[in-house]
């Protein structure tokens, strides 16, 4: 079986600084993959590269068996790979509904209509259903810049999911969200994404969240992949504990959260 997303010897350097090297990853359909690593370990660089925002210095990226090196984000998106952002990328002065309507119209076709209305009953119905999936329907008429961080993060992810991608990359979906809300947010996202069957890769700093939601885990260290395997195994790894997590993990407690 060929992987949905595969990178071969992916590397990125800025002058003398190596941001990523020897990145070999395979993601299969429907997988839920967590990503950990300290700041600057290459997680966001990885997402930027595979979605075409940043051109790798060398290496290949295969999506659905085709090399997508040099493709722009919009082309990668059309192929079926979308992402969310560490800082939600939205249209801040527009309402939540307008944000979703625009995303829908753009997802429908890259050639935008000049004359038909953006706001149709059908689109609004779909938008409301989508917002309901992400449990932010109550904000539908609010202007985005007035919304709390958690709602923005959910809207950001909802907009990425509109085109029903096969792979969804989430860059720190819970950053900027209060600790007590992290699990709610992830539960909502995972439930909504599960409907579509997309493979998910998410960057996360909270080991409790990682343990509960990911089945597989990638640990980045110094621009390289230090460990890749079933989440529990990677979390037990000595190197991962000392280099990436920075302290010893109480696995019993983690498993307690994971099973809760």
């Amino acid at each position: 079986m060929t992987a949905l997303l595969e990178t071969r010897d992916l590397a990125k350097s800025f002058g003398a600084v190596t941001a990523a090297a020897d990145i070999n990853v395979k993601i299969n359909a429907g997988e839920i993959v967590g990503v950990i690593g300290s700041n600057g370990a290459g997680k966001t660089t990885f997402i930027n590269m595979v979605t075409g925002y940043m051109k790798p210095t060398s290496g290949d990226i295969l999506f659905d068996g085709k090399n997508i090196i040099g493709r722009k984000p919009r082309e990668v998106m059309r192929k079926g790979m979308c992402r969310s952002f560490q800082v939600a990328q939205l249209f801040p002065e527009l309402t939540v509904l307008e944000n979703i309507l625009i995303a829908q119209a753009m997802a429908e076709s890259k050639t935008l209509s000049f004359f038909s209305a953006l706001h149709t009953n059908k689109r609004e119905q779909n938008a409301r259903a989508l917002l309901d999936d992400y449990e932010i329907l109550e904000y539908v008429d609010e202007v985005v810049s007035t919304l709390p961080q958690g709602v923005r993060k959910l809207l950001d992810i909802a907009m990425a999911m509109i085109s029903q991608p096969k792979v969804l990359l989430l860059d720190e979906p819970t950053s900027g969200v209060a600790i007590e809300d992290k699990f709610d947010l992830m539960t909502t996202v995972m439930a909504a994404v599960k409907k579509s069957g997309a493979a998910v890769l998410f960057v996360e700093h909270d080991m409790d969240v990682i343990a509960r939601y990911s089945t597989r885990l990638l640990a980045f260290y110094d621009g390289r992949i230090l460990a890749d395997g079933p989440t529990k195994e990677v979390l037990r790894d000595e190197n991962v504990q000392t280099l990436v997590i920075g302290h010893h993990l109480d696995m019993d407690e983690l498993e307690g959260t994971a099973n809760a």
Partner: peptide, 16 residues
């Protein structure tokens, strides 16, 4: 308006 507000998002929504 979308471009004025956020070009990156527009590109990631599949539009040039």
């Amino acid at each position: 308006e979308a471009i004025r507000e956020n070009e990156i998002r527009v590109e990631y929504l599949g539009v040039s």
